[in-house]
Amino acid sequence: MTYKLISNGKTLKGETTTEAVDAATAEKVFKQYANDNGVDGEWTYDDATKTFTVTE
């Protein structure tokens, strides 16, 4: 399945996607992506749209 990340960081804003077997796997990928880009904030997940959002 395709999962989307919306980043509302102070230094990184935008969207990216990943293919993953489940939401937990996608979350690990996205949290590593955010960490690699210096984004640390509040996370939410919408199962209906398969979208994670991180806001700093």
Rank of each mutant, 00 (worst) to 15 (best):
N8W: 14
A48M: 10
M1G: 11
S7P: 04
E42D: 12
Y33R: 04
K13R: 14
E42W: 12
Q32Y: 04
D22G: 03
L12R: 06
G9R: 05
V54N: 01
Y33D: 01
K31M: 08
K4F: 13
K31E: 03
A26R: 01
F30C: 00
G41S: 02
G41Y: 04
N8Q: 11
V21Q: 11
K50R: 14
A26K: 01
A20R: 02
Y33P: 00
T55I: 10
D46N: 09
K13E: 07
E19N: 13
V21I: 13
A48P: 06
N37S: 07
T11C: 15
V21N: 10
T55Q: 07
D40V: 14
D36S: 10
N37L: 13
S7I: 15
W43M: 04
T16P: 04
T18A: 07
E15M: 14
T18I: 15
A24Q: 11
E19D: 10
V54Q: 01
T44D: 08
N37D: 03
L12D: 05
K10A: 11
T25M: 11
N37V: 09
E15Q: 10
F52Q: 01
K31H: 08
T2H: 06
N37T: 05
D47G: 08
G38L: 06
G9P: 05
Y45W: 03
D22T: 05
N8P: 05
F52D: 00
V39H: 04
K31Q: 07
T25P: 01
T53V: 07
K31G: 02
A23T: 08
T49G: 04
E15L: 14
S7K: 04
K13G: 07
T51G: 01
S7L: 15
T51I: 05
A20T: 04
T2A: 05
E42Y: 13
V29M: 09
L12H: 11
G38Y: 06
G38K: 06
A34W: 07
G9Q: 05
F52A: 00
E56R: 05
T16Y: 15
K50N: 06
K4M: 08
T18Q: 05
T44V: 08
T49I: 06
A34D: 01
G9E: 04
V39M: 12
A24E: 11
K10T: 13
T2M: 12
A24M: 10
T16I: 15
N8D: 09
I6Q: 06
A20V: 04
G9L: 14
V39C: 07
T51L: 03
Y3C: 03
K4H: 13
T55E: 06
S7E: 04
Y3S: 02
E19T: 14
T49A: 06
V54L: 13
K10H: 12
K50A: 05
W43S: 00
T25C: 08
Y45S: 01
I6G: 02
E15V: 14
K31C: 05
K10S: 10
Y33N: 02
L12W: 15
G41F: 04
E27T: 03
Y33Q: 03
W43R: 01
E56T: 08
N35A: 15
N37W: 12
T25Y: 07
G38C: 08
Y3G: 02
Q32W: 05
A48N: 11
D36C: 11
E42C: 12
E19V: 15
W43N: 00
Y33C: 04
D36T: 08
D47I: 08
Q32H: 06
T16A: 09
V54D: 00
D46W: 03
N37R: 13
E42T: 13
A20N: 03
N35R: 15
Y33L: 11
E56Q: 10
T11E: 08
A23K: 13
F52T: 00
V29Q: 07
T25Q: 12
K50I: 02
Q32R: 11
T25L: 06
T49K: 06
F30S: 00
G14W: 15
E19C: 14
V21A: 12
Y3T: 02
K13M: 11
G14D: 08
K4N: 05
I6E: 04
A26C: 01
L5Y: 03
E56N: 07
T44Y: 09
F30Y: 01
I6P: 01
K50M: 09
T55G: 05
D40F: 15
Y33M: 07
W43T: 01
T17H: 09
T53Q: 05
D46L: 04
E27A: 11
K28C: 10
T2G: 04
A48W: 07
E27D: 04
N35P: 01
S7H: 14
T17G: 03
T25N: 07
L12C: 14
A34F: 05
I6R: 06
K28L: 11
K13S: 11
G41K: 02
T49R: 06
F30Q: 00
D40W: 15
Q32V: 07
T17W: 14
E19A: 08
T11L: 11
T18M: 11
K4P: 02
E15H: 10
T51K: 03
F52I: 01
A24G: 07
Y45F: 06
E56G: 06
T49N: 08
A23R: 13
S7F: 15
V39K: 02
D40N: 13
K31A: 04
Y45C: 01
N35H: 15
S7R: 06
Y33W: 15
I6K: 07
N35Y: 15
V21H: 12
G14P: 10
V21L: 12
E19H: 13
T25F: 07
E42G: 05
D22Q: 03
A34Q: 02
Y45Q: 00
G14F: 15
W43V: 01
T49E: 05
K31V: 05
T44I: 08
A26Q: 01
V54P: 00
G38R: 05
A24P: 08
V29K: 09
S7Y: 15
K13L: 12
T55W: 12
A20E: 04
G14A: 12
E19Y: 15
K28W: 09
G9T: 15
A23L: 07
N8C: 15
S7D: 04
K4T: 14
L12I: 11
T25E: 14
N8A: 10
K50Y: 08
T11H: 12
V21K: 13
E42K: 10
E27G: 06
Y45L: 02
N8R: 11
A20S: 06
D46C: 09
K50D: 01
D46I: 04
G9W: 07
N37G: 04
T53W: 10
T53N: 04
T11S: 11
M1N: 13
N37M: 14
T11P: 05
T25V: 06
F52V: 00
S7A: 14
I6V: 11
V29G: 03
N35K: 15
L5I: 03
N35M: 15
T16D: 03
D36Q: 11
D46A: 03
T55K: 07
T17Q: 09
L12N: 06
T11A: 10
D46T: 04
D40R: 13
T16Q: 09
W43Q: 01
L5S: 01
V39A: 05
T11Q: 10
T17C: 12
L5T: 02
L5G: 02
D36V: 10
F30V: 00
T16G: 04
A48I: 11
D46Y: 04
T55L: 08
Y45D: 00
V54M: 06
A34H: 02
A24W: 09
T16S: 09
D22V: 02
N8S: 09
G14E: 12
V29E: 06
Y33E: 02
D22R: 02
T51A: 04
T44K: 08
Y33H: 04
K50Q: 09
F30T: 00
Y3E: 03
T11I: 12
T53G: 02
T49Y: 04
L5V: 03
T11D: 08
K28A: 12
T17E: 08
T25S: 13
G38F: 06
E27M: 14
A34T: 06
L5E: 03
V21P: 15
S7V: 15
K10W: 10
A26F: 00
A20K: 02
D47Q: 09
G38V: 03
L5R: 00
